[in-house]
């Protein structure tokens, strides 16, 4: 569906995207993760042909990117934007028309979507008279008005209340059922865990982790402990096998280095304090994200290489 090969983009001294290679297959929801400034938006803009990469190629739908590809992709940018003075229905139709949808079709679809998202009463109102959440829904409708095969959503749920979040999530799931491919770029790890089959974690313009979500979690979980511990936390961090300690208040989440014997850590903890609970368990995507991003630097490259 989407293939990115060795793509690089530099701005002055900053390399926003550094030799990025990525393959996204047809169908399913793909999570694109990364901290702020990791290069996600730049990568997406290159996929959309809004900016040109300095190096590398991008292929969409099995052919090099061309202007006509834009009509088969829907893009919801993180920075939302609508013409404030335009009437809502006119606006959606306009955005549909520049995606190549005839005005009449666009209008019919817009009316149907607005009915579903409870916006029917607002068809003839101007954008500026809407609440932020409503504007977001309008923007979402505009993104899918041309029924694209590939949908790229950048932080689609930010600023929405739980009801509307659920409504949009339902639509995303429907789109997936229909066989469309969805790329979801977000910071909200719990959503990624629930929605995505495959993920890619980008940091500083490079891929840190890539693969199917369950596989990644399996791999990281062997190295994670959940400990309820009364004693000096700093002491635990001194154990040579401990990668990092994440304090959640009641419990500690301890990430171990590769190949460390968990029994050895238990013995070490018991000698220095009281252990009420000791569990070798699953590491949340949240922890994996933080751990990987914090590590930064060269080690990540090795792991990224492994994970590929």
């Amino acid at each position: 569906m989407l293939e990115i090969r060795g793509v690089t983009k530099r701005y002055d001294e900053v390399t926003a995207v550094d030799d990025l290679s990525l393959t996204i297959g047809s169908g399913g929801i793909y999570g694109l993760l990364g901290p702020n400034g990791a290069g996600k938006t730049t990568a997406i803009r290159m996929i959309m042909g809004i900016i040109n990469p300095d190096e590398g190629q991008i292929e969409v739908f099995g052919e090099p990117f061309s202007e006509s590809s834009k009509e088969r992709i829907g893009y919801l940018p993180e920075e939302r934007g609508l013409y404030r003075k335009m009437k809502i229905l006119d606006h959606i139709v306009f955005l549909g028309e520049i995606k190549g949808v005839p005005a009449k079709t666009a209008s019919e679809r817009a009316v149907a979507w607005m009915k579903r998202l409870e916006l029917s009463d607002w068809e003839q109102k101007t954008v500026e008279s809407l609440s932020k959440g409503m504007q977001q829904k309008i923007q979402f409708i505009s993104t899918i008005i041309h029924e694209p095969e590939l949908i790229i959503l950048d932080e689609p749920f930010s600023g929405l209340d739980p009801i509307n979040t659920q409504a949009l999530k339902d639509i995303v799931m429907e789109m997936k059922e229909e066989g469309r491919t969805i790329v979801l770029s977000t910071h909200l790890m719990d959503q990624v865990e629930k929605l995505c089959e495959n993920i890619c974690l980008i940091n500083k313009g490079r891929i840190v982790l890539e693969g199917d979500l369950s596989g990644i979690k399996m791999r990281f979980s062997r190295n994670t402990l959940t400990i309820r511990y009364r004693g000096d936390k700093a002491e635990l961090e001194k154990h040579p096998g401990v990668e990092s300690v994440n304090d959640f208040g009641q419990e500690l989440s301890v990430a171990l280095k590769e190949g460390v014997d968990t029994n050895d850590v238990l013995r070490y903890a018991v000698e220095r304090g009281r252990v009420d609970r000791f569990e070798i368990g699953e590491m949340s995507l949240h922890d994996i994200f933080i751990q990987q991003v914090k590590m930064g630097g060269g080690e990540i490259d090795d792991k990224a290489a492994q994970s590929r």
Binding site: R45, M48, E67, K70, P77, E79, G81, Y83, I98, Q139
Partner: peptide, 11 residues
Amino acid sequence: NRVIEVLLSSL
């Protein structure tokens, strides 16, 4: 308005 990015993803 930030509408420019939406437009540029279409034309």
